[in-house]
Design a protein around this nucleic acid. Structure first.
Length: 557
DNA sequence: AGAGAAATAT
DNA sequence: AATATTTCTC
């Protein structure tokens, strides 16, 4: 009758079927208790003398979940021996005498509770709590066989994910609902309607699990890198069977450093539970915050609704708002990492923004790249009239043959495609580029590397006509190793439709790919060999520092 | 597992 | 229409 883990995952209506060892020398009393317990769908094993009970519990300890032991009046130590022996078994002592010292003795010896006779249904109803409590108090390893399944079952009910146990969503929701109420005395409502048998947790332990479940929700939110989405990206509080108690008892975690991102529920205006939440930011953490007026720009900042933490429903839909701030941090991270390192997880790491997920970053990065590739060149040309030519011309975005048609002297009054992203004013909303913020590592370091393992730019990347003069200012390796479009295309007569520039990009991709994959072949028309600078940079990037001294500054532009 | 692209949602 | 999230593919 060993209760295995599998049995327990099927223990849907816990605590029905809980196995109770009952020791009472008074057979009438025993019968009475037994019938009450059985009415609650507990399974009762009655013993009328201690030694029988002892042998039963020692020979098959896994057969019982809880014991109710009468403190015998007839013998001196009646019942206490059992208590001492069956330490793994949550044991409730009972007696019709209620001598305080006896009670204390029982508790001191490990009894989980002392119940005065007669044992009413109410008293008996809650004995399952001790089972659960024990299951969660004891470390996973020394958990007695009979309790493991209990723990699994409960963990599963609470959606705590004990090991790979399948979480039970219906249950978790209900429990969560119940826990939101924070009441100790639960009438047979949510939980109990599903588990009609006993219950009405009164003891601290019982309630604690639920309350802590709630706490954990919060903890989860504040630490999780990915909000509670089920794809498991949440690296936060992975509650496992071994550490639930510790986890749950720990104070709600104080973000120690990471900034927090602003997230917004979808229904901003509805009510406190749905309204936007602005997490307090930690000024001391904002080491990189460059603009003091940033706060004023935050469209969402502080509507005074700090009240409630997101409940589950809302949490799912929390939306990251890419404010200027946030975007700036993003760009900084990206710049800092450089093109080949700028992957969502690293960016996320660098940004240290609380609550931001890798998905968020990935998405933003996707957009960022799109803009870099397709939009910025246009934007750049048209919206940075003051810029020295270098900035524009050295843009690393790929293909350039198809630079958007447009004459620099022709002021285009029409709004940009993506006004948000291209606005030149540093203080205004998002602008993708990082120029101006991090002059030591300008966006030029963004060399899109379409083919893993090789830096395309080092091998020749197509590029716009090189403007006169300014090249030498930029030591980056990219700029001199590009196609000189003017040799093959006439800028002034370039196609006006940006549609036509797509195929050209792909073509260039192909050409570059070919050049990369077959370095022994002559470079295709339009590709220049890599410059010395670019080769050196690539070599040093790959950890090769010693180069034969045969370099003659041939990187003329 | 995680990056990136595409699809989908708001 | 812009942009964020989700889903899908590799």
């Amino acid at each position: 009758m060993v209760c295995t883990r599998n049995d327990l995952s099927a223990w849907k209506d816990f605590p029905k079927g809980l196995r109770v060892l009952l020791l009472d020398e008074d057979s009438d009393s025993a019968a009475e208790i037994k019938s009450k317990l059985e009415a609650m769908d507990y399974i009762v094993y009655t013993f009328c003398n201690e030694s029988e009970a002892l042998s039963a519990v020692s020979s098959r300890p896994e057969s019982f979940h809880v014991a109710i032991i009468e403190v015998s009046t007839s013998s001196n130590n009646g019942g206490l021996k059992f208590l001492e022996t069956a330490k793994d078994l949550p044991t409730i002592m009972t007696s019709n005498i209620h001598c305080i010292s006896t009670m204390m003795k029982c508790i001191a010896l490990g009894a989980v509770e002392f119940l005065r006779k007669p044992l009413s249904e109410d008293k008996l109803r809650n004995i399952w709590q001790h089972v659960v409590h024990k299951a969660f108090s004891v470390g996973g390893n020394d958990l007695s066989e009979s309790l493991k399944p209990v723990k699994d079952s409960v963990a599963s009910m609470l959606h705590l994910q004990s090991e790979e146990g399948e979480p039970n969503h219906e249950h978790s929701d209900k429990i969560e609902d119940a826990s939101m109420i924070h009441e100790n005395d639960r009438e047979p409502s949510a939980v109990n309607s599903k588990y009609p048998a006993p219950s009405t947790p009164q003891l601290e332990q019982g309630g604690r699990l639920l309350v802590n479940g709630d706490v954990q929700e919060h903890t989860n939110w504040s630490t999780e890198k990915e909000s509670g989405d089920p794809d498991g990206e949440s690296k936060s509080v992975e509650t496992t069977s071994g550490n639930i108690v510790a986890e749950v008892t720990a104070p709600v975690d104080q973000p120690q450093g990471p900034r927090e991102t602003m997230v917004k529920g979808e229904a901003d205006l509805v009510d406190c539970t749905k309204g936007e939440r602005t997490v307090d930011s930690h000024p001391q953490d904002r080491v990189n915050s460059k603009d003091s007026h940033a706060g004023a720009k935050r469209p969402n900042t502080d509507s005074g609704l700090h009240s409630s933490w997101p409940n589950k429903a809302d949490r799912k839909k929390l939306k990251v708002e890419w404010t200027t701030e946030l975007h700036k941090e993003f760009v900084q991270a990206v710049d800092q990492l450089g093109i080949d390192q700028a992957i969502p997880s690293r960016i996320l790491e660098l940004m240290k923004v609380e609550g931001l997920t890798r998905h968020n970053v990935a998405s933003h990065l996707q957009k960022y790249r799109m803009h870099k590739r397709h939009i910025l060149p246009k934007e750049d040309n048209r919206r940075w009239p003051q810029s020295d030519q270098t900035q524009r011309s050295c843009y690393p975005h790929k293909p350039i043959m198809a630079f958007p048609p447009y004459h620099s002297n022709h002021v285009v009054p029409v709004g940009p495609f993506y006004p948000m992203w291209g606005t030149p004013h540093p203080a205004s909303i998002q602008s993708w580029g990082s120029q101006g913020y991090y002059p030591w590592q300008p966006t030029e370091t963004w060399h899109w590397k379409p083919y893993p393992g090789v830096h395309a730019d080092a091998w020749g990347c197509p590029v716009m006509p090189i403007p006169r003069g300014n090249c030498s200012k930029h030591s980056k390796y990219a700029e001199c190793s590009r196609i000189d479009c003017s040799s093959t295309m006439d800028n002034s007569s370039m196609p006006q439709s940006s549609v036509e520039h797509q195929p050209a990009e792909e073509l260039i991709d192909e050409v570059v790919k070919e050049a990369i994959n077959k370095p022994w072949l002559p470079l295709p028309l339009g590709l220049k060999p890599p410059s010395t600078d670019s080769v050196l940079a690539e070599l040093s990037r790959q950890g090769i520092s010693t180069i034969p001294p045969r370099i003659n500054g041939s990187n003329s532009c």
